[in-house]
Design a protein around this nucleic acid. Sequence first.
DNA 1: ACCTGAACACCGTTCAAGT
DNA 2: ACCTGAACACCGTTCAAGT
Lengths: 242, 242
Amino acid sequence: MPRKLPAPIWPRRILRHLPPVSDEAIVEAALGLLDREGVDAVTMRGVAECMGVTTPTIYWHVENKDGLLERLYDRLCSEVARPSSGPWQDRLRLLANGIRAVFVGHRDAAKLAVGRFPLGPHGLQITEWVLEALAEAGLDPEEMAHGAYLFFSYVTSFSHQETILPTPVSTNDRRDALKKIEQYLLTLSEKQFPHVTRSAKALSQPGLDRRFAFGLDQFLLGLTESSKRQRREPAKKKSKRS
Amino acid sequence: MPRKLPAPIWPRRILRHLPPVSDEAIVEAALGLLDREGVDAVTMRGVAECMGVTTPTIYWHVENKDGLLERLYDRLCSEVARPSSGPWQDRLRLLANGIRAVFVGHRDAAKLAVGRFPLGPHGLQITEWVLEALAEAGLDPEEMAHGAYLFFSYVTSFSHQETILPTPVSTNDRRDALKKIEQYLLTLSEKQFPHVTRSAKALSQPGLDRRFAFGLDQFLLGLTESSKRQRREPAKKKSKRS
DNA sequence: ACCTGAACACCGTTCAAGT
DNA sequence: ACCTGAACACCGTTCAAGT
């Protein structure tokens, strides 16, 4: 009569009905971790455990932690819907709102988008949509690229900011922290900081939806204006090629 | 005759001519670490070693690692010069360029600015300057706050992106990586991604100065336009108070 | 009041070794 | 081709204990 049971014949991941280790399964496990515990919980050890496998195994399927996050980001990009047809301004607005919605729908997912540009298989699709709209706005290819960077950088950095406000422990904590910031700003000398004190409320009370719209409107307003100007004076470009 | 020398009477940091442990000295040590090795080298253990002291000592002077980074960020804000008088657009441009210059002057310092808003002693000064300019642009206090967020988020997220391009190992590596991205983009089907392929060069070749100016111009153009509109139709506000 | 030693609970990554 | 055990070189943070 053996003291210990023999090691199970079946690998653990089959006993736990887990999918076989594959590229996609790893990304899916990472996504689950993200949804359940947030970006910081997406660790190599974490996804390995989710899949019933040891950590170094992950390195067989994915080069790096950064590579994993890159794929996870692209996985999120796949959730953004194509903007239904309409004027380019409306389509950009739909895209911006759609991307933001995906981020807030996955906890602090925006964290892993900062510093990245959507160039993965699904990300490229979004990039194409954005560039298409910008082309319609009358930008040349270089300006389109700049505009796309500006667009993504706005949406992600806004979403990032809104998901990490003071410290997202609980809704109450957050409100308290913001209240404290307002109090702090109001104690400042009106002489030294006249505009800060005047805007104290707005600075500390996010009003996030309005703020997101403000930046987006600004962006679209600038584009519309510069496209108008270009139509007015069309032959003013720095004609580098032809 | 003792085997070991007795422990030195003087604490190590005096032997090494190091300044006494203080709030400011800690921040200065962190700054040195940042300049020499980058943000990732700014660790609690690292600054402790710089000061010739053990790690837990740091916690006596600073609440957290995040608190330390917050102070370091504010220390960087102190390097931004007041914009010389002039029209508000010019002052905002000077501030944007000044902030970007500080970031690139301290390696990947922009990393620690993402997700933060300049509310420390020196940061507040910059915020005040920005708000002042936005007030001159005709924004109301709430819009000023939104505009300031937009401004800082643009400058920092741009600087962030430019400091982390593919992976900052060496200038050569970076160029190679960018070249690879361009190659990749050019392999895409022109049918499926017509605009991506058309902008491939600009997407993969940063042209950073021009891109920074593009976003800034966009921002200022939007502000100028909306301030013009407001002057045209002044009594259209959502009159919440008075 | 300020500093140290020792420990806890984590990380990403590598590498020889197994099947 | 794919997976494991064990280890390396780190992290942030806490806490009793020293002076």
